[in-house]
């Protein structure tokens, strides 16, 4: 039998343990550095809004430190929240957004189900087509759309321009394609056997959608809902073009058309209005953020 010589003094170099965690530490440091940078960059405007909203007009125009409030006041908030006009904008925005979200979901969920599951002739092309319509920017569309509604008014006598509800027809052109696309992706990630099992269990297509697909795809559904809400809440160009009377305006347009009088900028109230306007999406995101992320990343990994 041969013997194997074991050199017991073999490891002469200094052994380093935990090299993986050291790498990780550095990666984390860099991540924190850039994340902090990014957070500061994106949080500065809202912080500036908050600071300015707490100042009086006199303090804003005085040449003091713009990043500090010396005489905090809630006058801007009280002024806006007691103004019927501002509350009207808020109400209009809420009404439009809620209706648009409802309309969008009623159209895009069944559409996505049909395109993802009920294979019919041209369904794949149609699915791509739905997404392509989303790529046409609204800044190109508003003139022809205006023309269409004007002609529609001439022919039928039904006046849609300068009515808040015209936005219920326009916003879905932005929200429906994108939400349909999100939901197609989400439905496609549901295993095919699940609808086959439902069909064998005796479910109709509609029951498969309402009792299996919608509950299973709830995160995606919520993500799409949040998206539709954000888009309609923040939309600026369309309401600026299609509504002009102050009682028909939504919040973003209302703030700039009523609080900027000629060349007089009522900065305190503008900032307050913008901050109040940003609150509802902020609150919704805060509560549903997890769902939103889960919805947007669906299909990236299985499970």
């Amino acid at each position: 039998m041969s013997t194997v010589a074991i050199d017991k003094a073999a490891p002469t170099r200094t052994v380093k343990y935990g090299s993986m965690s050291r790498d990780r530490t550095w990666a984390l440091r860099w991540s924190y550095f850039f994340l902090t940078l990014f957070a500061i960059f994106s949080l500065l405007p809202p912080i500036y809004m908050l600071i300015t909203s707490l100042k009086s007009s006199a303090e804003i125009s005085a040449a003091t430190n713009p990043w500090w409030v010396f005489h905090p006041t809630l006058d801007n908030y009280i002024g806006l929240l007691t103004s019927n006009q501002f509350l009207r904008f808020f109400w209009n925005s809420a009404l439009v957004s809620i209706f648009v979200v409802t309309i969008t979901m009623l159209i895009s969920v069944p559409a996505a189900f049909a395109l993802a599951r009920m294979r019919f002739w041209g369904s794949a092309t149609l699915a791509t087509g739905v997404f392509l319509t989303y790529l046409i920017p609204d800044s190109l569309l508003f003139i022809p759309l205006f023309k269409v509604f004007a002609l529609f008014g001439d022919w039928t006598g039904i006046q849609l321009i300068n009515r808040w509800y015209v936005l219920l027809l326009i916003y879905p052109t932005l929200t429906v394609p994108f939400c349909t696309w999100i939901m197609i992706g989400y439905f496609a990630s549901i295993p095919k056997e699940l609808d086959e099992a439902a069909i064998i269990d005796g479910a109709s297509w509609f029951q498969t959608l309402t009792r299996i697909f919608i509950p299973v795809a709830l995160p995606g559904l919520i993500a799409a809902t949040i998206f539709a809400f954000t888009v309609s809440w923040a939309q600026f160009l369309y309401p600026l073009v299609f509504t002009t009377s102050t009682d028909q305006l939504v919040l973003p347009v209302g703030i700039i058309t009523t609080l900027i009088k000629g060349d007089v900028f009522n900065w305190g109230q503008i900032m307050t209005g913008a901050l109040l306007g940003a609150a509802p999406p902020l609150i919704i995101y805060a509560f549903l953020m997890d769902y939103y992320i889960a919805g947007l990343t669906a299909g990236a990994t299985k499970g």
């Binding site: 699940l194 086959e196 099992a197 439902a198 509950p215 299973v216």
Partner: peptide
Amino acid sequence: AMVFQNYALYPH
């Protein structure tokens, strides 16, 4: 009635 390879149970 059918039993599938991946069980196809309704997850919710």
